[in-house]
Simulated scan of single mutants.
Amino acid sequence: MSETEEPGISPAPTDTAPLPAEHEPGKMPAHLAELADRARDYVRKSSSDNTRRAYASDWNHFADWCHRNALASLPPHPQTIGLYITALASGEDGRRAAASVSTIERKLSALAWNYAQRGLKLDRSDRHIATVLAGIRRSHARPPVQKEAILPEELTAMLETLERGTLRGLRDRAILLLGFAGGLRRSEIVGLDCWAEQTEDGSGWIEILDEGIVITLRGKTGWREVEVGRGSSDATCPVVALETWLALGRIAHGPLFRRITGKGKSVAADRLNDKHVARLVKQAALAAGLRSDLAEGERAGKFSGHSLRAGLASSAEADERFVQKQLGHASAEMTRRYQRRRDRFRVNLTKAAGL
């Protein structure tokens, strides 16, 4: 299993700090230099690395499209943006297939962000953009394609496919069990440290107690605590799996989940990339024979890191509000999207109305 990180795309030059108007960057007073450096650091931390990489990739795609069509990418021209999203929707932007509505909306957000970093504003309400986007939605909008939820019995089968008695197997076992029981996003899993303020790039930490694990996370909706209790069996207990990985991996400080080196015999110091979680879920699901009723290529597209979150939401027999809190959702409606086998007719308004 490859654990090398994919090369990141260089983001647009956005790490700029606000300076007094009368000072040019090259003539900044010495006493402001440290503040400027700190401001640039805060700018970098205003969004996640994954978000910045995605926004940089979207900007590069837009700039290349503009170049091929002899159009200017700067400053923002609503007519140009309208043509661009039309090309995306029709598959005439150099891609192999037409982009989905959600992809087009994400690219618009990326363009707005990139323009904002350059001190420019993209007016998405302009008729050249808003009207075209409304037409695209009416013509091409489809229900969201959801990833398959991994249920407890399926997760157990996936665990059986992992290497036994190896560091890689122990680590991956802890990842799957903690990701499922905590309802964690893949970025949240690999962003964990052994304790608070141990690394600059960490996005959370753990505290192992007698009853279980308390995970403190900085997620999409802000800081939250996730409680992962001990399981009824050591074989499927996320706490036992994590304790075993930490003990045999000799990890007491810094990133919780790391790369395995030295032909599987050593634990590296650097943090595991979140793409590993997606690969792990997909490969273990296929190896366990999940959705064997489908063709191989179709099966591979059914599973991702989100399959763990959907699995918890679909299988946890608890009040919906507790599931919502565990997943860190801002609304119950979002939680319901993750529940693949909930009782949709538990509340029957037809009968309640007397029919």
Score class of each variant (00 low, 15 high):
A110E: 02
S233L: 14
H276C: 02
A12N: 07
A247Y: 12
Q283R: 13
L290F: 05
R346P: 00
L349G: 02
A157H: 05
G249Q: 11
G219Y: 12
R53E: 15
L35H: 08
S109A: 14
T236N: 04
K107Q: 12
R164K: 15
P11M: 06
V190G: 08
E320D: 13
R168N: 05
T86F: 00
R230G: 10
E92A: 08
G311K: 08
A300S: 11
G8R: 15
S139D: 14
A30E: 07
N50P: 00
A300I: 01
V190W: 03
A247V: 05
R259A: 13
M334G: 00
K220G: 02
P20T: 10
A330C: 01
R340W: 10
T350I: 14
L355N: 11
P29G: 02
L151C: 04
T166F: 04
G264F: 04
A269F: 01
D293W: 04
L19K: 08
R230H: 13
S331R: 12
L155A: 08
G212V: 13
S232T: 12
H329F: 08
V239G: 05
I215L: 09
L355F: 11
G183Y: 12
A116H: 13
A12K: 00
Y115H: 12
R137C: 07
L242Q: 06
R259H: 12
A70L: 09
H23V: 03
G119H: 03
A235Q: 13
R173D: 00
A54I: 12
R342P: 00
K45C: 05
I215C: 04
F322Y: 10
L178Y: 08
K265S: 14
S47T: 10
R127V: 14
S109I: 03
Y55Q: 11
E207P: 00
S47V: 13
R137G: 07
E34D: 14
Q117V: 01
I136F: 07
R124C: 09
S314I: 09
M28T: 14
K147A: 11
I208N: 05
A318N: 00
R218L: 14
K351C: 00
A252S: 15
R340Q: 09
L133T: 03
E225W: 06
R171C: 10
R258M: 11
Q146I: 11
K302D: 00
T335A: 02
G219M: 09
K263E: 15
H276N: 09
P255Y: 07
F322E: 04
I260C: 09
L308P: 05
S233H: 13
G262C: 01
R271H: 05
A174P: 09
S307P: 06
L192P: 08
A134V: 02
E5P: 00
S57A: 15
G202H: 09
R118G: 09
F303P: 06
S2W: 13
S57N: 05
S307H: 04
Q324E: 04
L286N: 02
R250N: 15
R279S: 13
T350V: 15
T16D: 06
S48M: 05
A252M: 01
M1Q: 08
I206C: 06
Q117I: 00
P78M: 01
